[in-house]
């Protein structure tokens, strides 16, 4: 396959940045999207140019490191797929592919396609956990948990923290990410003790960091590589109302 690429290049956080056109040739349709960029980078290095910087690590769709806005979609056009699991056979020969970094005020661009997502860590640090210190915990089977709730908690916990929800949302809202964590613990008896405090703190932090407001467009759910449901956002809203009223 031969492809034309339009890639966002920005040397540093303060650099203005611009799109640069590249061409790659003879790409196997079995190659992954990141392998295609690897090939481009090899050519750039051979030419003495600076390779395209991008985040990636596990390359099996679970670490949440990869983050590219490809042809108008976070992680590209294929549903329920991270960039690293996207393969070139999903593109047409000769196609022009536009590749941009995640865009959101709390996710500043560091270089090219790398953005700083530490805002997500700050939200989790605020209250995104159950405060159980090591040791002294009861037997794992001491509290039975309804299978349905355990399954729903797992659905929410599948979030990989990649930020595609923020990237997709026209408001750059982090509600899907935050609600997934709030939901996971709200559904488990162990998480109920701190539930009210948790939702208030995490929402306040999310607002403080400059994420936008949710307007229920549900773009996040459509683009989430792990298909996290917007019912988690509703659950967080319920939790929030409950916490504020009582």
């Amino acid at each position: 396959m031969d492809l034309k690429l339009k890639i966002w290049r920005q040397a540093s956080p303060t650099d203005k940045g611009k799109f640069v056109d590249y061409e790659v040739h003879n790409i196997s349709s079995d190659a992954s999207f990141l392998e295609m960029i690897d090939i481009l980078n090899d050519e750039l290095i051979a030419k003495g140019e600076r390779p395209v910087a991008f985040d990636h690590d596990c390359r099996e769709g679970i670490c949440g490191m990869c983050s590219m806005f490809i042809n108008g979609h976070p992680h590209g056009p294929e549903a329920a797929t991270t960039t690293c699991q996207l393969h070139m056979r999903k593109f047409k020969d000769g196609e022009t592919i536009v590749i941009e970094p995640w865009r959101a005020k709390p996710f500043p661009v560091i270089r090219d396609l790398i953005v700083d997502r530490s805002a997500f860590d700050l939200i989790i640090q605020e209250a995104g956990y159950i405060s159980a210190s090591t040791g002294g915990t009861p037997d794992a089977n001491a509290i039975p948990i309804k299978k349905e709730n355990a399954d729903l908690a797992m659905d929410a916990a599948a979030c990989i923290g990649c930020g595609a929800c923020v990237a997709a949302c026209k408001n750059a809202s982090a509600m899907l990410f935050v609600s997934a964590k709030v939901s996971q613990f709200a559904l488990l008896p162990q998480g109920k003790v701190e539930a009210k405090d948790r939702v208030k703190k995490m929402v306040a932090k999310m607002d403080e960091l400059g994420f936008g407001n949710c307007t229920n467009t549900y773009a996040c759910e459509a683009e989430c590589p792990k298909e996290i449901s917007i019912t988690n956002i509703a659950r967080m809203n319920r939790q929030f109302i409950g916490a504020k009223l009582g």
Binding site: R103, G212, T215, T217
Partner: peptide
Amino acid sequence: QNWMSRPTGYKKRAFMEQSPFSK
């Protein structure tokens, strides 16, 4: 606030909203 939360927009952005008129 929502406009402010994305100071730089995308060059190419697909229509992703599942509730179309929400946009």
